[in-house]
Design a protein around this nucleic acid. Structure first.
Lengths: 332, 332
DNA sequence: ATGAAAGCGCTAACAC
DNA sequence: GTGTTAGCGCTTTCAT
């Protein structure tokens, strides 16, 4: 517990018979210093294990080099990938990332944001819940830019990275239609979230464009179990369905389980495509899940870069990333 | 971009015709203030949307209320769960968590740590790579406590949370032996990491205690593919094996795939148990993986609590968490 | 019960 | 080129 005081600019200056300002300039390569002084300072700094004090620095600079990342379920690999992408790019530009797990409702999310704001972060990257749209707008208004991922907060700013859900579903459906499928079902999730809604819409639209009617069954919660029940019902009532699109990979696993239970063999008599490309989609013992993959790492990377660019005064535009249809073992 | 200056103590004080010190005391419930003043201050503070400046505070307090969390593969749900546990508990005690992804070797890890140290964190929770043990010791020595998770850095401190790998494997093996299995194989991972080594040792010991000999095949990398190859070889050479223990769930999935390829039906003619309880172990279409589950969230929670307690001057002890044998569908 | 003074570690502006 | 002065927002100590 020997709390050694860490070395400060002053400590270095004293050793060198200079002032802390000189040392600061030398280390930051700012101002006009003699090369020799600079060299000596740098040498001494590393000898003394100097670590700049970010708090002091951000106090005077009004810039913290901190990002806040607010998202639910850090524990799910999906968000973990996004977080990894955020950190990767932030760190390249000398930013650090503060996490705020918003799992557990918007009260939790709000407190996470408040904690993050106390730190004087230069920007916030968030997967915002709709209840807090106005709060995020206030934050953005007050000068802390808010980057939205996955879905956009209307009328706020240009800082957003979303995936084209509509297009993702469409591609999957087109694939099936082109291969002769005519009876295509959907297991979706009941949710007011734009993301999920767009998947359902993309589904209807793609079918409608080909004069086909959708069989839809909405499973309320985002879980394998709920999806399995929904799929069992849907397939029992509509045994003519030959392809089943699922609003998430969780649902896809549930659907496959339900199908097998009903004696339908995947992919021979029923094909299944999920959404997201969760880690478990490809880590299956028997049947790797075909899915519409979201570019998770890239979402995070872009979100960070958008923020960095914006802070640097560069003009940025909302990013819409294309998902990618990944055909594995639940499709023929 | 209207960067509104955020309100400071002084701003509040001015409105109230008081000084910033009074306001500070009122808000922190420190010192002796009249109830009325306090009430007025608090009311004004919330009216003006006052958010304390953590940088300024930490500068004078020499305490940042920040933890750093250094771990590889934030993207893997395994570490995501741990991170979620860390954040959950940290946040309860008003700490925020800075992430440092150490994925990509010890140079990356070192830089992550340096960035974290600049922030003047009150403590670091790390899954340390062995190459950096000495560096971590220095940090700990210099007054920033280092909490180790998953494996311990020898001769450093009492701050560690590890899982009893040895016991976890043992339990699985005992289970099999008690059910009559006599030919039990192991697919492990080649690694100098203590964690992995202990699993192998636990395996040998458990078998030796019953006078049995292990069939071991070490797959170098931690991946499903490598494990599948190793399993195929092991099962071809030793078809008498009836149970196969795997050093990770990745390996378990690979093993099941290999077994089926060889015409062995799991769990009827071959049982498989993995390690970790990764999310995908229970998100299988056909065969949920039996596994030795690590209490991931709890690892994170305990790590945070250990750090909080230590910082509060309380005496703490290393924690060794028991894993839990979870029997699912790859065992009978 | 409240104000005044001082300083945390750093940098920006201006002297010299 | 380098030192001086000043201040970021906050808390602590000491007067009053």
């Amino acid at each position: 517990m020997a709390v050694k005081k860490s070395t400060t600019l002053k400590d270095i200056a004293k050793k060198l018979g200079a002032t802390s300002q000189t040392v600061s300039m030398a280390l930051n390569r700012t101002g006009r210093l003699s090369d020799e002084t600079r060299r000596k300072v740098i040498a001494m700094a590393r000898e003394m294990n100097y670590i700049p004090n970010a708090a002091a620095r951000s106090l005077v600079n009004k810039k913290s080099f901190l990002f806040g990342a607010v998202m639910p379920y850090v524990s799910r690999s999906f968000f973990g990938h996004i977080l990894a992408g955020i950190e990767e790019q932030a760190q390249l530009k000398d930013f650090s990332v503060l996490i705020g797990n918003s799992e557990g409702g918007c009260a939790v999310e709000r407190r996470a944001i408040e904690r993050i704001r106390m730190r004087g972060v230069d920007g916030i990257i968030a997967l915002p819940s709709e209840d807090l749209f106005n709060y995020y707008r206030e934050i953005n208004e007050s000068g802390t830019p808010v980057v939205q991922i996955m879905h956009r907060i209307p009328n706020m700013n240009e800082l957003s990275v979303i995936v084209d859900n509509f297009q993702g579903v469409r591609e999957a459906i087109e694939y099936w239609i082109s291969r002769g499928h005519r009876k295509i079902g959907l297991i979706s999730h009941g949710s007011s979230v734009e993301t999920v809604r767009l998947r359902t819409e993309g589904f209807r639209k793609a079918l409608a464009d080909h004069g086909l009617e959708p069989n839809i069954h909405v499973a309320v919660p985002l879980s394998m179990e709920a999806a399995a029940i929904a799929a069992e019902e849907l397939l029992s009532t509509n045994p003519e369905i030959t392809a089943l699109f699922c609003g998430s990979d969780y649902a896809a696993v549930g659907a496959v389980r339900a199908a097998e239970k009903l004696g339908r063999h995947v992919p021979d008599t029923l094909e299944v495509i999920g959404f997201d490309d969760m880690d478990f989609a490809s880590m299956q013992c028997h049947m790797q899940i075909s899915t519409v993959a979201q570019p998770k790492e890239e979402i995070g990377r872009l979100a960070s870069r958008l923020l960095v660019d914006h802070l640097a005064g560069r003009k940025v535009h909302p990013a819409i990333l294309p998902p990618r249809l990944v055909l594995r073992e639940t499709t023929k």
